[in-house]
Design a protein around this nucleic acid. Sequence first.
RNA 1: GGCCCCGUCGUCUAGCGGCCUAGGACUCUGGCUUCUCAAGCCAGCUACGCGGGUUCGAAUCCCGUCGGGGCUACCA
Length: 485
Amino acid sequence: MTKKIKVRFAPSPTGDLHVGNIRTALFDWAYARHTGGTFLFRIEDTDTTRVTDEYIQAAIDTLKWLGLNWDEGPEVGGENGPYLQSQRLGIYAEWAQKFLDQRDAYHCYCSADELEAVREAQRAANVAPGYNGHCRDLTPDQIAAYKGQGRLPVVRMRMPDGGTTFNDLIRGDVSFDHKFVPDFVLVRGDGSPLYTLAVAVDDVLMKVTHVLRGEDLLSSTPRQIRVYQAMGLALEDYPVFAHLPFVMGQDNAKLSKRNGEVSIAWYRDKGFLPEAICNYLALLGWSPGDNRENVTMKELTELFTVEKVHSSPARFDMKKLEAINGDKIRALTIDEFLDWSLPFLTKAGVVSGSADEIALVKLALPLIQERIIMLSEVPAMLKFLFVKNFAVEADSLAKITDDASKQVLERSLKELEPLATWTHESIEAALRSSLIEEMGLKPRIAFGAVRIATTGSTISPPLFESMELLGKEASLARIRAGLEL
RNA sequence: GGCCCCGUCGUCUAGCGGCCUAGGACUCUGGCUUCUCAAGCCAGCUACGCGGGUUCGAAUCCCGUCGGGGCUACCA
């Protein structure tokens, strides 16, 4: 029988989760869902100097917001917890001791300065850098001497001669000669565990079957496998590895704050939909194989396979993300669009949230749904419907103070005032027959002036629909005010 | 420097020996439509890093080379 697949996402929250992390999380999640397996979320907070509680909480919130729900991990629990490594210190200490007892690991008393000196010498001699095995076989006398100096030893894993070959699901067989994989540290001098120990122990204890992670971890894989050996894990129980290609910035450098926004919080504030972010990120290093690009989360779980994941890195392209976000916004129902837009409208102070306002927003939303690419554009588009002290935008002012515009506004007023029914059809009919047909004006000129007067800007939702929603009274008042400018 | 990974339009990708005079998407350019802005539709620009092989035939396989990236911590 085959084991049930379990995939884990295990970030080290030393900052806000960035798009690279999220892409990894997305693939982990999609693979787990595709295979009907378990998605496990673990926090790797062994580096206490860099990880903070805020970042941990932010990571949890981000995953939730994106809809990458997990089956085991923080908040939801599970039978293999706890899921914060800082709460599992005793477990790591036990295993480290076991490795020591088995002589798979040993105490190393070398100081930071001594290690640095060794590395420098290796660099100068042009040989492979790495620990030179100085403390591998210390005599009791030497150990006593070091202890006498008050040195605190680290626990170091002994790498046997030979090499490690493993099959990476994305890259095929990858081999490392142990000549280039020096003995590595498992436990710090202060007794705290390192990533190298914790990650391997947890993956085994939590019964993880598939490790899909960033390719920066590729060369640490032989060390992880070495820990499995020391733990006595049967070969067939080793997790399977798949190293995902990087997501890079526009300038081909590693993604950072400097080249493109990387924090998911930024995208949320800009008004990107989670589904758009996931859809776009899924396309970075993966494709369904056919020509489709717009996929829902559900379709993603159906289509995703590791075999389709690329081995080469991808550049992050904001323009493409925006295009996809626009598509996703257009695909929203009006009620969904309303739910997403309201927070942006209230935050911008355009509406306070009354039932009347919401009703009007709901009527206006269809007018702008195909005109925006981000939700943060909604307030500016609908502001004219709600603003108390209406004023024409400064840079549009000059375009309605000329004589031609005045004539347009005067005539508009005259035609609209007697209108009995105020609908976009009646408004359009009245203005077209008078301004276009009788006055012989070009539509863009004539309607442009009316647009500026009533919406305050040269850019607005469709004019006649906008005026209908604005109402007769307010529309005429604004045209009259425009005449006074 | 050493080890490892990677290399198709500007970008993301399809392609797994003949269907490729290399397809799609985003961007860009031009056009249509049009009350602005969008959306939509049509058209166009632009790619197999380079050099050797293998083969009747290579973007696809092999070797080399160049280029990019990662690792080389008591970070992850």
